[in-house]
């Protein structure tokens, strides 16, 4: 996929990453490095904290009279809509952030639209969580070894995984299984791979740390792709 970057390259990118102003491609380059480098995660963590603290320097300004009442009214209105929708939207945003990385890695040029920037900031938050070891980006292994795609895992409430497959030989519907340290194997769902390409995401009902591996298989054939989280 992408060229791997080292600690020096990452240090160049880290300040803009912390400020949330990097391009999709730059974010994609850094994610693989971060997944395996605790020192750079620490650097990004510190710089992100610094970027956030800058916001504390802005002088306060009292809003117009009646502001409090108007805000509380709006919150009351929003309460009418089911809260489940919010959760799903959040999961969708995080998944989209993971997808964005992959799209960028695949060489697609992304414009710095508002949506992209939103994703950038969700991504940054995801990375921030990663500093605690809660974000995983692991390669999928096919029969021929590495190179079948990636799995992104996010530990949160809810936790989710996002599977991206790029394996020319594959096509069809695949079952996504989840294997845990203890207990039976769980079928998470079915993923469609067309012409070797596919992406699929799901909320996972378990702690990410308890997941041993995730496998993709088809009825009648052994596991074709697997990743160890």
């Amino acid at each position: 996929m992408s060229d791997e970057i080292g600690c020096r390259d990452f240090a160049e990118l880290a300040p803009e990453l912390a400020l949330g102003t990097t391009t999709g491609e730059e974010r994609a380059l850094s994610v693989e490095h971060l997944a395996g480098c605790a020192r750079c995660r620490q650097l990004l963590d510190e710089l992100s904290g610094l970027a956030d603290d800058l916001l504390l320097l802005v002088p306060p300004h009292e809003p117009p009279i009646g502001f409090e009442t108007r805000v509380l009214e709006r919150i009351h209105e929003s309460r009418q809509s089911p809260s489940r929708r919010h959760t799903l939207r959040r999961v969708a945003a995080l998944m989209a952030a993971a997808l964005l990385l992959v799209v960028a890695t695949a060489g697609v040029v992304l414009r710095a639209t508002s949506a992209d920037r939103d994703l950038g900031s969700s991504y940054r938050r995801t990375l921030a969580v990663a500093n605690g070891g809660y974000f995983a980006a692991k390669p999928l292994y096919g029969r021929a070894g590495k190179g079948g795609g990636h799995i992104f895992g996010y530990q949160g409430s809810p936790s989710w995984i996002f599977v991206v497959v790029s394996e020319p030989a594959l096509s069809g519907r695949f079952k996504v299984h989840l294997e845990m340290n203890v207990g039976p194997r769980v079928v998470l769902g079915t993923m469609l791979i067309e012409h070797g390409q596919g992406s699929w995401g799901s909320v996972v009902p378990v702690d990410l740390h308890d997941i041993e591996e995730i496998t993709l298989s088809r009825p009648g054939t052994p596991e074709v792709l697997e990743a160890h989280l």
Binding site: L55, L56, V58, P60, H61, E62, P63, F67, E68
Partner: peptide, 15 residues
Amino acid sequence: AAALVRRFQGRIYGL
């Protein structure tokens, strides 16, 4: 909710 708004409205609005 009201207390949270009162506590932070100045900083949020200022930014």
